[in-house]
């Protein structure tokens, strides 16, 4: 039944494919899961109506749209204007960032905990690279930083994650 619905509504298959990744990206730039969902909704609807026929990678366009919607939301609510200041809330919510599986739940928890402890500028690059599947050049454009800086932040993030996970393993 759901397959039929997905087949009849092409946006549903797109949303199933890109929705989880977009939500994870949005949570880097919003203060709560509810805000992140609002941002994803706005960005996806905008993309579906006006941008889906544009050339280029859909994911890059969608992430651009998500980021713009997140910045707009932050401005609208007069919270904080600088990205570094507002990009810390989404991950402070308790809802898990990743799908819960029956196996290796402890490991997933440890990774999530380590991810939440990363500096924001490293975490957003890591999320955009791993789950947003953007290149360093695309990340650089999104964040208005040099591509080399994006690559450095990515390596630092991986190294910090490894260190945190090793420490967690040592402490049982």
């Amino acid at each position: 039944m759901e397959d039929d619905a997905t087949h009849n509504d092409p946006w549903k298959s797109w949303f199933q494919l890109y929705g989880p990744k977009l939500l994870l990206c949005a949570r880097q730039w919003t203060r709560s899961l509810a805000d992140a969902e609002d941002v994803v909704q706005e960005a996806f609807v905008r993309f579906w109506r006006h941008q889906r026929d544009l050339p280029g990678e859909p994911m890059a366009l969608l992430i651009t749209s998500v980021r713009r919607a997140a910045l707009d939301l932050a401005r609208r609510e007069s919270r904080r204007t600088a990205r570094e200041e507002f990009a810390d809330g989404g991950l402070e919510d308790n809802p898990p960032l990743f799908q819960i599986t029956l196996e290796q739940d402890d490991r997933r928890d440890a990774i999530e905990a380590a991810l939440r402890l990363l500096p924001e500028e490293q975490r957003e690059v890591l999320v955009l690279k791993i789950w947003g599947e953007l290149t360093f050049d695309q990340i650089a454009q999104q964040l208005a930083i040099p591509a080399n800086t994006a690559a450095s932040r990515y390596r630092y993030a991986l190294a910090a994650l490894r260190q945190a996970l090793t420490a967690a393993d040592c402490h049982g």
Partner: peptide, 19 residues
């Protein structure tokens, strides 16, 4: 290992709002 982690799916509420 990170690439194998799948981001959590959006809630049904969000899908309904998009629809």
């Amino acid at each position: 290992e990170l690439k194998n982690l799948r981001p959590a799916a959006p809630s049904a509420r969000l899908a309904g709002k998009v629809e």
